[in-house]
Design a protein around this nucleic acid. Structure first.
Length: 601
RNA sequence: GCGCCCGUAGCUCAGCUGGAUAGAGCAACUGCCUUCUAAGCAGUGGGUCAAUGGUUCGAAUCCAUUCGGGCGUGCCA
């Protein structure tokens, strides 16, 4: 990474200066410091503010420190530096250094931005997200969790972690009982065994049940299970519930797949934690009991959560004997730890934050390390149309579910808008904007940049019609010539850019604004791996979408100022190498986010 | 009441492990298509960074308090 090379150079310089006794009281090189981007391009390409940060410890004026560092700095490797009050060191890279980094894009192509796994120890991550109950379709909130979760999983993979993703199926307990009641009634109503008025009040909405329990579907399943002898009047409630559960899981899987959310594992609570002969919930209660962290009160079993930082104790087994959600959740988390992951990431809806102290406390109580568990809370989503909030009411036929939104705006827009939002901010999804097909809509804006770059390649290597003579002319570059450029020349040539943009003898004048756009674009492109690392470290996929918007804007600017076709050979190659690099980086970033990168629009 | 999250341009948001004049996009206005996609580019206007106090050479960024909004505060999940 460019940053590492520069920082290492500065660390060397500081070490030498300390050795020479020229940095006052400073004794050791700071372990990390930032390489800042210059807001004002007149300052340079990058800036370092380490001199000001060292001032106190060294007991020296920042500007003196900066000057001393620069004295020992082997800056010829990267370009030139200037010291500016109060103590900034500004860097301007030379073309050789830029190109040495730039060619990596061409040689690594679709893996440019993927970071080296070997640099990570403790890299096995289990990320659990969505985990909706199998009792209904997925609503917008689930959609946001699904998209942000999958984008984060992908981001972490790019950053070199070993990522395993999981959906926890809450298929045991009271909600399944409620589902069974609902499913039975929904079937019986459709078979006219009971009347619609007899649908239980506390059941899941009838409308949501008949979405999956269609006569042709449940009739087929029942007929198979019961060898054709279906008695709707005395329908087995458990069987009805089982059928509904499986259909909802099937529906959820399909909806998620349609928005490019796929899990490595669907973890069934019932099958993994509640097996009669190996009941993990009982086991966890035994462990807590043995550690002296349980007590009985008013017929219920309580976990001493307050002792572990919660605001009060929590019931783990109700007085009627049923275990609470927390009991299974502790067992589930123990299972996760036991599978040997270094880090567990849970993505939960923001309304569940009250559960955090409970689960953390329990993990402490069973002597597992709670610091290895990370919780990410995702706040609510609302819909907006023409600046007015859309109330989500199923009755009025408004959008409430993920599949409906996806049908309305498409997968790419749905994913982009959600990824572009920060998890802990509430989100307003703008339906009109997401459907727009112009630059107002960032998805199109970015995809269009990619398509434009692709079109340059297409035009270069295809036959052309002369406008004046209407005659066909041969392509500017042959298919094989283009292939060679892309696969060999761009990967190895280290002076294409320098010659084209730095040479005073160039026929075509390149003005300073134009050159600035080119430098900024190149620096941003080179910065992609760094962007991946930064985003992964703070678990923020939106950083990638922000990065993409910026790259797209720079590319459009570049495209307008720099024609590729119809200029000198040298200039064409230089500009083409930039267009191709832009195309690679945009495609990689979109790919990371699960959004398509069209060749043509 | 207590706990968590949020408050930056008219709107949607970046910037938050302190650094140089606080940035985009939308909306408003003005230019640019005989040349690789105008699904684009360039330009103009717009701010007490919710408020107050503190720490610092330096605060949108850190700390404290206040105000405003959301969520949570079950023997629900």
């Amino acid at each position: 990474m460019l940053k590492d090379k520069v920082i290492d150079l500065f660390k060397d310089a500081i070490a030498k200066a300390i050795e020479a006794g020229e940095l006052g009281k400073l004794e050791k090189v700071p372990s990390q410091f930032e390489l800042d981007k210059c807001k004002n391009p007149d300052h340079g390409d990058r800036a370092i503010s380490v001199a000001m940060k060292l001032a106190r410890e060294a007991k020296m004026a920042p500007i003196k420190i900066a000057e001393t560092i620069v004295k020992h700095l082997d800056y010829k490797q990267i370009g030139s530096v200037t010291v500016v009050p109060p103590g900034f060191i500004n860097i301007i890279f030379d073309w050789d250094f830029l190109e040495a980094n730039f060619v990596e894009i061409h040689s690594m192509k679709d893996s440019f931005g993927k970071l080296d796994k070997s640099q990570r120890s403790k890299n096995k991550i289990l990320i659990e997200y969505v985990s909706a109950n199998p009792t209904g379709n997925l609503h917008l909130g689930h959609g946001r969790q699904a998209v942000l979760g999958s984008a984060l999983a992908s981001l972490l993979e790019w950053a070199g972690y070993d990522v395993f993703s999981e959906f926890y199926i809450n298929d045991a307990g009271v909600q399944i009982d409620k589902l069974s009641v609902s499913a039975k009634a929904a079937i019986q109503i459709q078979e006219a065994v009971i009347s619609k008025e007899q649908y239980p009040d506390d059941a899941y909405p009838f409308e949501s049940m008949i979405e999956i329990l269609k006569p042709e579907i449940y009739q087929g399943i029942l007929s198979e299970k019961l060898q054709g002898k279906i008695d709707y009047k005395n329908l087995d409630e458990k069987l009805a519930g089982e059928i509904a559960k499986n259909l909802f899981i099937e529906l959820q899987t399909k909806v998620l797949q349609d928005i490019e959310v796929v899990f490595d594992n669907w973890f069934s609570e019932k099958e993994n934690l509640h097996q009669a002969e190996n009941n993990k919930v009982l086991e966890i209660c035994g462990i807590l009991e043995k550690n002296g962290n349980l007590y009985e009160q008013e017929g219920a079993l309580w976990f001493k959560a307050k002792h572990f930082g919660d605001e009060r104790d929590r019931v783990i087994q109700k007085s009627q004997g049923v275990y609470t959600y927390l009991a299974a959740d502790i067992a589930y988390h123990k299972n996760k730890y036991d599978r040997g992951f270094d880090k567990l990431i849970n993505i939960w809806g923001g309304d569940h934050h009250g559960q955090e102290p409970g689960i953390r406390g329990a993990i402490k109580a069973i002597n597992y390390d709670p610091d290895r568990l990370e919780l990410i809370f995702i706040q609510m989503v609302s819909l907006q149309k023409n600046g007015v909030e859309v109330k989500m009411s199923k009755r009025k036929g408004d959008i409430v579910n993920v599949d409906e939104l996806m049908e309305e705006v498409g997968k790419d827009a749905l994913r982009f808008f959600i990824v572009d939002s920060q998890a802990n901010n509430r989100m307003v999804f703008d339906l009109e904007l997401a459907k727009k097909q112009d630059k107002d809509n960032p998805v199109y804006y970015i995809q269009y940049a990619h398509a434009r770059a692709a079109s340059i390649l297409r035009n270069l290597s295809s036959k052309r019609i002369n406008i004046e003579s209407s005659k066909e002319e041969k392509a500017i570059i042959s298919e094989s010539g283009l292939k060679q450029l892309l696969e060999q020349d761009f990967c190895s040539a280290k002076s294409i850019l320098g010659r084209a943009f730095n040479d005073e003898e160039q026929e075509e004048k390149i003005d300073s604004d134009q050159l600035q756009t080119i430098r900024t674009l190149i620096l941003e492109l080179i910065d992609f791996p760094e962007a991946v690392l930064d985003a992964a470290e703070i678990r923020a996929p939106y950083k990638i979408s922000v990065y993409l918007k910026n790259i797209a804007s720079l590319f459009h600017q570049f495209y307008n100022e720099n024609r590729v076709i119809g200029v000198s050979e040298e200039l064409m190659q230089a500009r083409l190498s930039i267009a191709v690099a832009s195309k690679i980086v945009i495609a990689n970033a979109l790919n990371l986010l699960g959004i398509s990168a069209p060749e043509k629009m």
